[in-house]
Amino acid sequence: MLECREVTKKYGRKTAVDGVSLKLEPGRIYAMLGPNGSGKTTLMKMIVGLAKPNSGEILYNGSPVGVASRREIAYMSTEPYFYAWMTAGDVGKYYRDFFEDFSMEQYERLLSQMELTKDLKAKTLSSGMMAKLKIAVTMARKAKIYLLDEPLNGIDLLARDEIVRCVLDAASPDVTLVVSSHLVDELEKVADTAIFMKESHLVSVCGIDEMREQSGKSVADRYREIYGHGGVEQ
């Protein structure tokens, strides 16, 4: 289980994440929602140890996150981050070299499912293909926690289905999935819990079905209430 306690991160004068406390439990799929700049990415980066909080702490199974937790926590960033010289095959080899939970067979299966080949140069991929490559290499790990930052951003409808299926495929009672998005509808039926971030604060965490049953509200309705618009970037 992962726990954030009063986590704050500042970049210069700007506060990116402000006093966020949050527990992520296994067996759940979280939709982390909020407009760009609401602190989703920074929070994810702190959980995986890429960024270090100014105050507060992040615990994975009771101990602070760091080198050991990175073995079990997989993170996929929005932006491409592979070395310019790499092909899709090199990306796979790199992950195999560093992550014990990475499966080359699974990677190859996902690549062909996404209609990608190993000889494709990372540098020359279109944004849609890059998004597929990133998700394939991330989901080929057998991690305990997956943090996927905007995996559906800039991707056509068909590819979205592939990616959503990929996410569902990884779901299991001992796995935690966190998918961030500013597109609410995409995640509505896939996620069971919604995390709403606004202006570097955590606004609320709520069960999606409970919300519908108790107040007849969908995630999109709640999103509108919180942000004052319908989840479309303004």
């Binding site: 995986v48 140890g49 890429l50 760091g66 080198v67 050991a68 990175r70 073995r71 993170y75 960033s77 932006e79 491409p80 981050y81 592979f82 070395y83 790199y94 560093f98 992550f99």
Partner: peptide, 13 residues
């Protein structure tokens, strides 16, 4: 650059 993720995502200190 974003390339930093390659190194700092790995389980290495």
């Amino acid at each position: 650059t974003k390339q930093s993720y390659m190194l700092f995502l790995t389980p290495r200190n």
